[in-house]
């Protein structure tokens, strides 16, 4: 499932995938795959992304139970 919260927050701050990737120390491809829902990041990487975007884990990565993928 696509992580639109991450994508919208990044666009809201006018940060490109490349810039966010540099801030958190990963490749642009990794950010792209997280936004596309094709890669599940570790909690450590989630925290780095949240810090870089000035939000909490809940804001970007929390899903209500009915939306949760099996």
């Amino acid at each position: 499932m696509r992580n639109l919260k991450l994508k919208f927050r990044r666009i809201e701050l006018d940060i490109s995938q490349t810039d966010l990737a540099k801030k958190v120390g990963v490749t642009r491809q990794t950010i792209g795959l997280i936004e596309a829902g094709e890669f599940n990041p570790s909690i450590r990487l989630c925290r780095k992304i949240c810090r870089a975007l000035g939000v909490t884990l809940n804001d970007l990565f929390w899903e209500e139970e009915e939306n949760e993928e099996e």
Partner: peptide, 12 residues
Amino acid sequence: QLEEEPSDADER
């Protein structure tokens, strides 16, 4: 190629 910034429409 992989690190090229895609457009918002086909971002991944």
